[in-house]
Computed example of a mutant assay.
Amino acid sequence: MPDIDLGVATDWDDGDTHARVKLEQNRIGQSPAKKDVLVTSPMSIELSVNTNLSSSQESDKFYFTTYRGGVKKIIAVLDSNGNLSIAGQVFTGQGNLTY
């Protein structure tokens, strides 16, 4: 399946300026038939819906990833039980989180 190009998503000048939805090899399963749905942004922030070899209709994990240089890093993982694992620091008491 080809990537679905969502078009220009930002005025970012470097690299690919398009957001995409694509299939990526499943990180956990060994079968090449198992794929994850990946939503990417021009800033290399990705949301991956991981099937984790589940036989149910629920997704087992959401991976939030980004790139630091050329290395892909996992920022956070949210599982189907509502458990959230965060890599790095959590800052509390932030007053203004507007975009």
Rank of each mutant, 00 (worst) to 15 (best):
1 M>V: 09
2 P>H: 13
2 P>T: 15
3 D>T: 13
4 I>E: 14
4 I>Q: 15
4 I>Y: 14
5 D>Y: 10
8 V>K: 15
9 A>K: 00
11 D>W: 10
11 D>L: 09
12 W>K: 09
13 D>M: 13
13 D>L: 14
14 D>R: 14
15 G>W: 05
15 G>R: 08
15 G>T: 04
15 G>F: 04
16 D>L: 04
16 D>T: 02
16 D>W: 04
16 D>E: 05
16 D>G: 02
17 T>H: 06
17 T>I: 02
17 T>W: 00
18 H>L: 01
19 A>R: 07
19 A>F: 02
19 A>T: 02
20 R>G: 00
20 R>F: 04
21 V>R: 10
21 V>T: 03
21 V>M: 10
21 V>E: 01
21 V>G: 03
23 L>G: 08
23 L>T: 01
23 L>P: 03
24 E>G: 03
26 N>P: 01
26 N>W: 01
26 N>S: 14
26 N>V: 04
28 I>A: 04
28 I>G: 00
29 G>Q: 08
29 G>I: 06
30 Q>R: 10
31 S>R: 13
31 S>N: 13
31 S>E: 07
33 A>G: 05
35 K>C: 00
35 K>F: 02
36 D>I: 00
36 D>A: 11
36 D>H: 05
40 T>H: 00
40 T>R: 06
42 P>R: 10
42 P>S: 09
43 M>I: 07
46 E>M: 14
46 E>G: 13
47 L>P: 00
47 L>R: 09
48 S>G: 14
48 S>L: 10
49 V>E: 05
49 V>T: 08
49 V>G: 12
49 V>F: 15
50 N>K: 12
50 N>D: 09
52 N>M: 09
53 L>Q: 10
53 L>T: 06
54 S>K: 11
56 S>A: 11
56 S>R: 06
57 Q>R: 12
58 E>K: 15
58 E>T: 12
60 D>C: 06
61 K>G: 05
61 K>I: 05
61 K>R: 13
61 K>Y: 08
62 F>Q: 06
62 F>A: 06
63 Y>H: 13
63 Y>F: 13
64 F>I: 15
65 T>M: 07
66 T>H: 15
67 Y>L: 10
68 R>D: 13
70 G>D: 11
70 G>K: 12
71 V>C: 06
72 K>V: 08
73 K>R: 10
74 I>Q: 10
75 I>K: 04
75 I>W: 01
77 V>H: 01
78 L>H: 03
78 L>G: 00
79 D>A: 05
79 D>N: 15
80 S>P: 02
80 S>R: 14
82 G>D: 03
84 L>N: 06
86 I>Q: 03
87 A>C: 04
88 G>D: 00
88 G>N: 00
88 G>R: 01
89 Q>N: 11
89 Q>V: 09
90 V>R: 08
91 F>M: 07
92 T>C: 02
92 T>E: 03
94 Q>M: 13
95 G>P: 01
95 G>M: 02
96 N>S: 03
96 N>W: 00
97 L>R: 13
97 L>T: 15
99 Y>A: 11
99 Y>I: 05
